[in-house]
């Protein structure tokens, strides 16, 4: 059987191939990622509390600062992990190289030659080759986010479901898919092997690699979905803390 990892030809769109300006896509990427980074900086540097009752913002979890009893900028201890995980992510690399570096701005665009381009062979961009380490750290953070998601269902007066609980749960799910569809993880669990059946039967490693490969096809989708969910979760809790909105309890 063919591997499901290959893309399949799509039915030909009827009608005409509309001409599209190449700079539209990178510009949109630049705007979204840019606003997100600015928002994150504002959140990390101008706030010191991400906890509203039983809701904890993903920016502030785990609360490393609290463990040591000193938290000048609580989010700073943790927020760099997901940031670097995303920065070194093979999917986001595509997006920001296109969006911010214009390397390339679009496919097959006649760009001015920049002979000093060195790809990812030199520092600091060579750090992207250590994506696996940021993945290890991101998994640790993810465990805490699951704890937070569960905790979000236990209010002062017992079990319940609020909009915040759902957002945190969805966020944890999206982040799980995003984390475990990672290219570096795919390599770790089996991609590094050349032969899955040489020991006789297909190994557990093959099955895992195959599963991860299927998820990996949608890595970009999970990347955007989890970015949105993290953002939404934090914004929701921030607005609660600011008193702008009130949490809606479903039951």
């Amino acid at each position: 059987m063919a591997q499901p990892l290959e893309s399949r030809p799509q039915a030909r769109p009827q009608g005409s191939a509309k001409p599209k300006a190449y700079w539209v896509e990178p510009l949109i990427t630049m705007l979204i990622l840019g606003v997100w980074v600015l928002y994150s900086l504002w959140e990390v540097f101008f706030h010191n509390n991400g906890t509203y009752q039983n809701y904890i913002s993903p920016y502030f979890s785990p609360g490393v600062g609290k463990w040591f009893g000193w938290h000048l900028l609580d989010a700073l201890y943790v927020a760099w992990v997901p940031f670097l995980f995303r920065f070194s992510c093979y999917y986001y690399r595509k997006e920001y190289y296109r969006g911010f570096f214009w390397d390339p701005p679009g496919c097959a665009q006649g760009d001015k030659p920049r002979p000093r381009y060195s790809g990812e062979t030199k520092w600091p961009l060579a750090i992207n080759n250590l994506h696996r380490y940021f993945w290890y750290l991101a998994v640790i953070v993810l465990i805490f986010l699951w704890k937070d998601a569960v905790q979000a269902f236990f209010f002062k007066n017992g079990f319940g479901v609020g909009v915040g609980s759902l957002i945190l749960l969805v966020n944890a799910v999206f982040l799980t898919f995003y984390t475990f569809s990672c290219h570096a993880f795919r390599h770790m669990v089996g991609g590094k092997k050349d032969c899955y059946s040489c020991d006789g039967k297909p190994t557990a490693s093959y099955k895992l690699w195959h599963k991860v490969s299927q998820w990996n096809v949608f890595h970009g989708t999970w990347a955007w979905a989890s970015l949105a969910s993290v953002w939404a979760a934090d914004l929701y809790i921030r607005l609660l803390l600011m008193g702008v909105i009130h949490d809606v309890r479903l039951f």
């Binding site: 893309s7 790809g119 991609g191 590094k192």
Partner: peptide, 29 residues
């Protein structure tokens, strides 16, 4: 590592080979 995984090669491949995801990135790893 001169490749910065921007995937234009995958986009234009008439044989729908997932060049970046299935070849270049695993090799980079």
């Amino acid at each position: 590592n001169m490749c910065n995984v921007t995937k234009c090669c995958t986009e234009v491949c008439p044989q729908h080979i997932r060049i970046t995801d299935n070849a270049i990135i695993p090799l980079k790893e």
